[in-house]
Design a binder for these strands. Sequence first.
DNA 1: CGAGGCAATATGAGCTCTTG
DNA 2: CAAGAGCTCATATTGCCTCG
Length: 352
Amino acid sequence: MNNTQPKRHGLSKSRILLHRQCPKRLWLKVYRPELEEIDDGSQSRFATGVHVGEIARRLFPEGVLVDGDDLGQAISDTQAILAGEKRPVFEATFQSGGVLVRADLLLPAKNGYRMVEVKQSASVKDYHLADAAIQSWVARQAKLPLASVEIAHIDSSFVYPGGGDYRGLFRYADISEPVAAMEAEVPGWVSAARETLSGEEPRIAPGAQCETPFECPFFGYCSSPASAEDGYPPEILPYGGALAAILRGDGYTDLRDVPEGRLGNIKHRRVWRVTRSGQAELDPEAGKLIAALPYPRYYIDFETINPAVPVWAGTRPYMQVPFQWSCHVETANGAMSHRAFLATRADFSRKA
DNA sequence: CGAGGCAATATGAGCTCTTG
DNA sequence: CAAGAGCTCATATTGCCTCG
């Protein structure tokens, strides 16, 4: 009997979800966390998610937050708040069967509470359902009366009026039905995750689960050094994922070894030629086209920003807002002049 | 049966950086 | 110290249907 290990590792909702994506991912997260490679992209999405959650809470000023790192304390705080006058609760914490969850929002309703998960996405995604199912399963076990289970996602048609007024930023989607249908599966997910954690490192070959639904930070560890060649894998072919898979199946691990006859697409052939020769190819037609352009010639470049939570009045979530441009002007005599703009003020977007 | 057209789907580029 | 897991726009490819 080896039941001390599983007890040491409580299961949070996120751990069960990791296990659903890949048992090995959960195992590594718990026993070999130092192998995790976290990139900037997921780091910043993460930060955006926190910001979005914070905005969602601000919309319910009468709400009370269950904070602190002490989860046992959070659970008893939650019970104390729920025993009092009914009002919105943020980060309400529940535990059942060794599984711990925290609900982003609990909103008072006629028959109990609406349990709302806040997501920075612009629509309800399939993987949100499993997430919510774990949440509601635990909450129900903990005897919380649930009026509904909902996802609050960003409404990308929302236009920010300014002044910190974010009413309407979120759309509340009721997913009570699909979640109720899924709840029966939750105990199975929990015991499967336990089982994985009480065993040795699972042997699972890299595959589609490495990216779906989320990119795995242990991919570098799982993919063997042999396949991480620094040559020219067939995958560099643009829009060539399907073809690359076929070529790999036929044993080609380097584009340069592939016979030209296997490539039909004209762009694939160009990539193949350049990769083999190591010589850049210049299309003479492109040169002719450029030589024929009239003067003055304008060379323009600009930069944009697209925050999930709109910052400037009149903009929408995820709207690309330019804030800088630069333009070189070349005249017939070869003289080059430059004009540029960089926004430094809060109302900058219009001018840029 | 194949060309052509349209729609659905895939891919790539470019962008976010906190709070309790 | 742990949470969460995004979007838009443009373009390319693929899949399916229709019609000659």
